[in-house]
Simulated scan of single mutants.
Amino acid sequence: MPIDPLLAGARRSWEELAGVPVPFPPCGGVNVAVSPESGMCPAGWVGVVALGGSAIVTAPSDSAAAIVRDALRELPVQAVVDADSVRAVLPVSRVLGPAVLAYLSPERFRPVPPVASEVEQLPAGNRELRLLEEVAGPEDAGEAGLDEITSPAFVVREGGQVVAAAGYRTWLGGTAHISVLTAPRARGRGLARAAGSATVAHALAAGLLPQWRARRTASRRVAAALGFAELGAQLSIEMTGHSRPRP
């Protein structure tokens, strides 16, 4: 059966980020590869991505890959991105995620109609974005990753201040990784949708595949409202005794 083009594009992006040849199994299952320079996870960690019923995993060394391969073969694919399931079979010291991965094709896009608060553009790295991150706090700012965007920032103001912003970072494989952040006092009023919609429109016009990565329910709701389809999840694992030494 031909693979859905949206799923195929999402898989290509993560296969390139893996840094070594490691394809998603065509009929389910998990492929594990050694990739010390993997872009799927922090350096020295194990990166796991499951999409459409198959998964790929990168490990920092041969020994780590052997342990991971033996442990994960006992789990169904959906469990390899579940933190509790992985902790039960691997010596885990820290975990990032899981985060849901959602993607959008042009025909599924549901743009937000004009609202009272106009969306404007700012350059990536603009000081006003840093001020928004300070207001939102380090946890939310780190989750959003506005400091990593390569596109313009699309922002909404209230009282002259930026209270919502979105943008994207261009990844290998032509993926636009979306970042969205809203000030705590301005949440729940559709401002993230407005900024996110403008960002997605910009990415689609550039011929990129929009990717929305989210852990929180509110963020997933915004993505769903814009037409994103959830195709899988990502998990990063630091294994005891197998991390790259810190400088």
Rank of each mutant, 00 (worst) to 15 (best):
A229N: 00
V119C: 06
R244Q: 14
L122I: 12
A186K: 01
V22H: 03
G125A: 11
T175V: 14
A102E: 08
S197K: 10
A50W: 02
Q121H: 04
A144W: 12
C41M: 09
R87F: 01
V20F: 04
R69Q: 15
R108I: 00
R11E: 13
S93C: 12
D140S: 15
G174S: 08
L104Y: 02
S151K: 10
A165G: 12
W14G: 00
A10R: 02
V49M: 09
S151P: 05
A141K: 13
L235E: 00
L191A: 06
R110L: 12
C41Y: 01
R216P: 00
A203K: 10
G159A: 08
G167R: 09
Q121L: 14
R213H: 03
V156I: 15
E107P: 01
L101H: 04
G29N: 14
P245E: 12
E230S: 15
E74F: 11
A18I: 07
G142A: 13
E15V: 14
R187F: 03
A8C: 04
V34Q: 04
A102Y: 01
V34T: 09
G39D: 13
L122S: 10
R187T: 11
I237Q: 02
A205N: 13
R94L: 02
R244W: 08
A66T: 13
G167K: 09
V46K: 02
G39N: 12
V81F: 02
R69Y: 01
A116Y: 01
I3C: 07
G232H: 05
G232F: 04
E148T: 15
G232P: 01
Q211T: 05
A153D: 06
H242C: 00
M40I: 15
S197P: 05
A203L: 10
A71E: 07
A66D: 12
A166K: 09
E158D: 06
H202Y: 07
S35Y: 12
R11H: 10
V89C: 05
G167S: 10
G188Y: 06
E107I: 10
A33P: 03
L235M: 03
F24L: 12
A198Q: 10
I67L: 15
P113W: 07
A136F: 07
V46T: 07
F24K: 13
L90W: 03
E16K: 14
V92G: 04
W212G: 01
A203I: 14
A223L: 09
T199F: 07
A65F: 01
P26W: 08
A144Y: 10
G19K: 11
S54Q: 05
T150C: 11
V135S: 09
E118R: 14
P245C: 08
D82E: 15
A102F: 03
A192P: 01
P2W: 07
A99G: 02
E15C: 06
R189E: 09
D4K: 06
R185H: 15
S219V: 11
N126E: 14
A195S: 13
R185K: 08
L131P: 00
L72E: 02
V20N: 05
M1Y: 04
R246C: 04
L146W: 05
E238Y: 02
F109K: 05
A176R: 12
R220I: 08
C41Q: 14
Q121P: 01
A33R: 13
L75T: 04
A225L: 09
V100H: 02
E128R: 14
V68H: 00
P42M: 10
Q234C: 08
L132P: 01
